[in-house]
């Protein structure tokens, strides 16, 4: 059974169709990249998978359960968590408390949640900032915190939205290494990314969207040779 099965997914906004008849699946243990030009429907797809918007039609199965109509917190409870493209810390809470919010999902007791959050902070290399407030962190730290909060919810599928955007090469490599490591430990990833270098470097498989439809998928190597993809996407890349 696939971890995530999306079939004939569609979302209309007024007269516009942002996602049109999208079908794909994600297998356990994979890192799948989702790419496409601006307006291809990546953000809408992410929002639907994580419960922030309801699909107009189609079906999303996560671990065999339909999550079409679930709220984000319910989806999260099932083991599917997302991060945001623009980092969304809780600015006036400490870094530890930020991560505790995620940890509370499976650890209602504060002592346990704190313990879990500290473990996560060690993993994302932010333990030394545990008592600092969210708002004083630097961008690379915020990006790691964004992953940390999600990680604390103990997801089986983690959706990463432009996790490397705005980072310098060294900082980016640190994040990518973290993702690879987490993946080896069993977390499946679906990532949206603008930077081709990140996608090609990280993904086992790439799905290409254009105008709300899948126009190709395959290994990074295959995708970079797919003529339809080149025409629709790579040609427009700046």
């Amino acid at each position: 059974m696939s971890l995530l099965e999306v079939s004939n997914l569609r979302r209309d906004f007024g007269g516009l169709t942002a996602v049109h008849d999208l079908t794909f699946s994600v297998e356990p243990g994979e890192i799948v990249g989702l790419i496409g030009p601006n307006g291809a429907g990546k953000t809408t797809t992410f929002a639907m998978l994580s419960g922030f918007i309801t699909p107009t039609s189609g079906e999303i199965l996560f671990k065999g359960t339909s999550i079409n109509k679930l709220k984000p917190h319910q989806v999260c409870l099932l083991g599917l968590t997302r991060t945001f493209q623009i980092v969304q810390p809780f600015p006036d809470m400490t870094v530890l408390e930020n991560v505790m919010i995620g940890a509370y999902t499976h650890h209602p007791n504060t002592v346990d949640a704190k313990k879990k959050a500290m473990e996560v902070l060690e993993r994302i290399n932010l333990a030394h900032k545990a008592e600092e407030q969210g708002k004083i962190l630097t961008l690379p730290e915020l990006k790691r915190l964004e992953i940390g909060k999600a990680l604390a919810t103990e997801p089986s599928l983690l959706l990463l939205d432009e996790v490397a955007a705005g980072l310098k090469d060294v900082e980016m490599e640190e994040i990518l290494e973290l993702v690879r490591q987490l993946n080896r430990e069993g977390i499946t990833f679906l990532i949206v990314e603008h930077l081709m270098k990140v996608i090609m470097n990280l993904s086992h498989r790439v799905i290409v969207l254009d105008f709300g439809q899948m126009i190709g998928q395959g290994t990074p190597a295959e995708i970079s040779k797919n003529p339809a993809v080149l025409a629709a996407y790579l040609g427009k890349e700046d």
Partner: peptide
């Protein structure tokens, strides 16, 4: 404020979408 309920309330105030994404039943 020192337990889950309180922290989750704060997270709603600070950033409702992020809280919801992390499993907080904001409603």
């Amino acid at each position: 404020i020192k337990r889950r309920f309180g922290y989750q309330l704060l997270s709603i105030r600070e950033n409702e979408d992020a809280a919801e994404a992390l499993g907080v039943n904001t409603l």
